[in-house]
Design a protein around this nucleic acid. Structure first.
Lengths: 199, 199
DNA sequence: TTTATAAATGAATGAACATTCATTTATATT
DNA sequence: AATATAAATGAATGTTCATTCATTTATAAA
């Protein structure tokens, strides 16, 4: 019996991610993917049921990797300032080290593929995020507000900065690339903490 | 001589926008668009050079509409608080009233189509936004910070809330739809102002 | 009313698409 | 070494794709 080639599947997934990010879902075809991964088109259907299954599995893996990275060293019982700082660093590090992952997830977010049902994992992750916020409110380290407002204030600025860093397109007029360094991140985190700290 | 049918072009553009938002660039084809707009495939090529031209023109129009809406009643010489409030209301109103526009622009942002060169209009718009921020810093109504940090703090939370409103997917655990009302918006704007006000 | 011209048509073209399947290849098990 | 089995192949299938073009239709200008 011939055995499954783990490396082959990894190559397929990697090339697929690259193709989708570079050429969009539009320019992503099974035949081009087969060529890029150095396998025959038929081989793709051994590892994945069909094109949609491949895209969905790609998405699930990226989500898993990202949430693992976010939870690294994170304790939902930690103080708000400490917990938020850990999450900012984790999110920024992961996204900057995995720009393809970020661009793929952004692309899928507003596409029809996003209508994949949430897995148990996602719900656990969300529960943890909510618990952290509720803890902080209870301890009066965080102003009392709807969870969506908290989420928007706490993370949207960071994601905006990371997106600018990855695309290189900032807001300045010249041709210089925007680079998100630690100083800029700390400055922004300080502003966010100021907004969210009870007076 | 037969004349150009303005209404026909509008219908084509409208249906194209709907199709792209509902089915992605993937599911968007010239033949399906022709059927949806009740014209023959050939007619599409009278109004648009090709598929890419159609998508690009769609994008330009949406950008123009959006920046017009943002600048409505906006004065870059106004006080920071007043100017930011006007922009928040303008942005929120436009996006909530034009959810297709928002979803289309989000979809294009991370696709290969985004590599369209900025028009003069965009640059004027950006100049105005920068001028507003610089004025506010000069007047000590806004903390001194890099323009990208300002941008991330000032607008990313709003956009996050609008996105949740349009998709209906908030952060809560139940099946209730998230709705961005005026109270929630004012609450968030207050937090943003708190963060950005010099101490 | 006639004429000139651009809009509009839709069948046709060839390329690219996702997927299948009869066949071949590699290898774990015996 | 023989066998069984799943991986891997790649040509083939039928569909859909973007785009073209000879033809027809509507209408502004004469």
């Amino acid at each position: 019996m011939r055995t499954r080639d783990e490396q082959k599947e990894l190559t397929i997934r990697e090339k697929a991610l690259e193709m989708i990010v570079e050429q969009g879902f539009d320019g992503f075809s099974m035949q081009k993917l087969a060529k890029a991964a150095n396998v025959s088109p038929g081989t793709l259907y051994i590892y994945f049921k069909d094109r949609d299954d491949l895209i969905m599995k790609l998405w699930e893996t990226q989500m898993k990797n990202m949430s693992d990275a976010i939870l690294y060293n994170f304790d939902p019982e930690a103080s708000f300032e400490e917990g938020l700082r850990v999450q900012w660093m984790n999110r920024a590090r992961y996204l900057i080290e995995n720009p393809l992952s970020m661009q793929f997830m952004e692309q899928i977010k507003y596409s029809p593929y996003h209508h994949v049902s949430l897995t148990r994992l996602d719900n656990n992750f969300l529960d943890m995020m909510r618990k952290f916020a509720h803890n902080a409110i209870k301890r009066k380290e965080l102003v009392k507000l709807p969870i969506e407002v908290y989420w928007s204030m706490a993370f949207a600025p960071l994601y905006q900065l990371v997106k600018m860093h990855i695309t290189g397109r900032g807001m300045h007029s010249g041709p210089e690339k925007f680079v998100l360094d630690e100083k800029t991140m700390n400055m922004t985190l300080k502003l966010v903490l100021k907004a969210l700290r009870p007076t």
